[in-house]
Design a protein around this nucleic acid. Structure first.
Lengths: 139, 139
DNA sequence: TTACAAATCGTAACCATTACGATATACTCT
DNA sequence: AGAGTATATCGTAATGGTTACGATTTGTAA
């Protein structure tokens, strides 16, 4: 299993002093079962089945909280933020992202390694490397 | 000079049957002088000095037109689309982008080259590789 | 079981972008 | 040069994703 375990995530919440709520468990459970990048709107649609009229505030507050706690990874794609459970392995990595189903494939090699020497005098903050397309199931 | 020439851009417009307008020249002139990624809002603020009350429609229509004609390159950054004059050399390349002044430094090597073999059965549409930070002038 | 901080609700505001009917303008043809 | 036409622009409203906030509810610790 590549993704962070639900229990692991819920215990991070507890340890950091955040409350346990059913909605939070359901949010994590949603990301666990879909296994790939999803939008706030995807999550809202899912939760609205069980909790009709759930607030935007709840959706976004929890997405941001989980991101701050490194439970979720995020990326900006097609003008919309996308979220997924953080990969378990701590090593720095990048992703192929399927534009149809949102599932990902990890890329272990990082292009930055070979480029450090080209940026003398620059301050490098971060970088983004993503490959987009269709996974074998969607192709 | 790395960027596409103004005259070159204006003749593309003419050849494709689009009209020459002073606003279009001013838009290209703006991107020529700032030499780096800028937002629609940056452009609006600039043009509003000369053409008070210029329409959003004009800004965005021309940005999209120029992008469709490959006169401008675009990237999504911090929830906002950013535009710059297309680099002159046709070769595929990536960019370092200064978060302070928007200026860029081309990266000639492309990480995709070494990765093709890892995606058997996948359909690769495109990819994004960008480095963010501060350039020597802003550091 | 009480008290309080945290979470959620309901809803409005915000920001970038898109859309569109009405008007103005660059270009072509005569 | 003048008229006709497709294109460009204006003024403004709508849209979509996200953020904000006062009022209310709820999980948790004492």
């Amino acid at each position: 299993m590549i993704e962070m375990q639900l229990n692991q995530a819920l215990s991070i919440l507890k340890n950091e002093g955040y409350k346990y709520t059913e909605k939070r468990e359901d949010i994590l459970s949603f990301f666990n079962q879909v296994d790939g990048y999803r939008t706030a709107s995807d999550l809202l649609n899912h939760l609205n089945q069980k909790y009709q009229g759930i607030s935007y505030d709840t959706i976004y507050r929890n997405l941001h909280l989980f991101h701050d706690l490194s439970i979720l990874e995020t990326t900006e794609l097609d003008g919309e933020k996308h979220f997924r459970l953080s990969c378990d392995h701590d090593e720095h990595h990048h992703h192929f992202i399927c534009k149809s189903c949102g599932k990902t494939k990890a890329i272990k090699s990082c292009p930055m390694n070979q480029l450090k020497q080209d940026f003398d005098g620059y301050f490098i903050e971060n970088h983004k490397f993503e490959i987009y397309g269709l996974c074998p199931s969607c192709h």
